[in-house]
Write a protein that binds this DNA or RNA. Structure first.
Lengths: 338, 338
DNA sequence: CTGAAAGCGCTTACAG
DNA sequence: CTGAAAGCGCTTACAG
């Protein structure tokens, strides 16, 4: 990708008959340049097809205009809307978005963040709290701003734009208990290196503990894939101590669980209720439609972008933002026995 | 996002007792530096926590190590796996990915591409052929390599990594006809500014034209949203000339159509068959599971990355790559009458 | 409102 | 294998 030689600011200066300083000003602070001069310059720029060289600009100004989002995966709608919202707000401010995925691997996350920093990322959107020590040290050493999303914490040194996974799972489970369920199972995400998955388990457990007579009969961890969710559901349904409700760590798991239940002739919600987490498209398409926790993807993405933009503009005293993640009631949850 | 002052190559040179040229070589072409020197340098780099300044490097070498993907939307799983695959291959080569979305608007696409070029994008992954003239002119003028995906064409000047939407839709429709369907409707994507949506309609029409007695009773265009697909299905089902099969321009539309049909008491596939396009997660979760055209997302994403990487490495005579998009048979398609 | 000039931090022929 | 030095294309005090 060798570039053909492009016109430089010197070419424009020569053609317009002014200094390069004035060209630079005309581009970056137009109102500090006389209208007549500006017009000449614009004409010259147009004629030459000039666009400023990125590297030169960068080196001189020490700003890249670029932030990065590092997410576990793009293939799951779990993060898509959030990243989309993040990008839209950034684009509105003329800031570009670099993106990388980690496959839920902290070492890969470290590598990606380091590479992105070396390539000009001035700020980061990160998912969750679980992170390699080295990553935190790197970010701190270089004093790079970042916003932690998809979770919430009270650490005043950290900037969050997220929600409380434990509370969301707790509240959802409370509603399940309220409907009368006492034997509950969980299909959780893989909890290692994943605080969101862990917090959801904790929340479910905590809610069950508040209800005398209620029991968590089983917790199975599964990757966020349809096949894994289906298999977990089958294991749960074939156990002797069959639950009346299954809480799931994600919609992918929950949707797959519903499908597998149907294949096994188990009716949802009459025989078993299923609750998801995310509220992505899947939730409304499965039969019965999924009762699920709505993750505030758009809110988080927008807030993260605004926070980063504000930091960039030099604002201080920025505050973390916490959003609600309510349970959306649909057909997959009903009192035990239907 | 003002950076605190970081160590420069001069600091490293001083500490290691060598010239900056040698530092640069140790980093970029390690085997042209004596082992002993390299060790000294590595130690100095480590001590200082040095990482090369992006702007300086860029200006001197004129390479950004960054390519961009400009897609209609990230919120739909339609493109997610393809972009994920694209990013993974790039990351393996140490190349970073900028990403932007256009909302299916050619003007927005132009703006995003221009902004990305100004921010160092050395190559592009683009979706489909429909594009503003100005965009093409811009790309050409700056001689920026790009790969066109999610479609295919025979233009030898263009680099494609995609599939033939018309052929895929044609083949799928042929199979529907083979099952005995003669009255067919279509829920298409919005075709303006979208060659993929248009080609799918053309393919469906062409296949129907090959079958005596077969008719396309209705074509409704809908945005790729669940609600729009559901409403389109309702309109189709309430028409007097009700089809026995509905071809859809995407899985989102098809899944929503199935759900709405069920709500209206219309059985799929007994009363009406439904065929999708994409094969995203939704397809396997809806009841009945969706018969759908599998879009080779991963193949396209990987191929696009490899093509761009090859161009970058100076390879010439690169060839477009065309993949298959086969119909995946599941429960939503059956002969008329079930 | 405008210009001359220094400087940002690298890379890379060129020479040895 | 290593170094001295030019140069990449901008921005930005400083001066007027």
């Amino acid at each position: 990708m060798q570039r053909v030689s492009q016109p430089t600011i010197d070419d424009v200066a020569r053609l317009a008959g002014v200094s390069t300083a004035t060209i630079s000003r005309a581009i970056n602070m137009p109102d500090r340049v006389a209208k007549a001069t500006r017009d000449k310059i614009e004409k010259a720029i147009e004629t030459l097809g000039y666009t400023p060289n990125y590297g030169g600009r960068l080196l001189a100004s020490n700003r890249t205009n670029t932030v990065a989002a590092v997410i576990p995966t793009m293939s799951n709608a779990m993060f898509a809307s959030g990243v989309q919202a993040f990008q839209e707000v950034l684009a509105g401010a003329g800031v570009n978005l670099l993106i990388a995925s980690t496959g839920y691997d902290p070492d890969e996350e470290f590598r990606q963040i380091r590479a992105l920093m070396a390539n000009g990322a001035e700020g980061f959107l990160l998912i969750g709290k679980d992170r390699a020590e080295t990553t935190l040290a790197l970010l701190k050493k270089r004093d790079i701003p970042y916003v932690t999303t998809w979770c919430f914490g009270n650490d005043p040194d950290q900037l969050y734009a997220g929600f409380d996974n434990e509370k969301a799972a707790f509240d959802a489970t409370r509603q399940v208990l309220l409907q009368g369920h006492r034997r509950i199972a969980m299909i959780a995400g893989i909890t290692i290196h994943n605080d969101r998955a862990r917090d959801r388990v904790t929340g479910v457990m905590a809610a069950i503990a508040t209800q005398p007579g209620a029991r968590l009969v089983q917790v199975i961890e599964a990757r966020y894939r349809l096949e894994a969710g289906a298999d977990a559901m089958e294991a749960i349904l074939s156990s002797v101590d069959r639950p009346t409700a299954v809480m799931c760590g994600s919609d992918v798991l929950a949707a797959a669980a519903i499908v597998r239940a149907a294949e096994l002739g188990v009716r949802v919600p009459q025989d078993v209720s299923v609750v998801g987490f995310d509220d992505i498209g899947l939730a409304r398409v499965v039969t019965p439609a999924l009762t699920t926790v709505r993750v505030p993807q758009t809110d988080m993405g927008q807030a993260a972008a605004r926070l980063l933009l504000a930091r960039r503009a030099g604002e201080v005293g920025l505050k973390s933002q916490r959003f609600e993640a309510p349970l959306i009631l649909r057909g997959s949850l009903a009192p035990p026995g239907g």
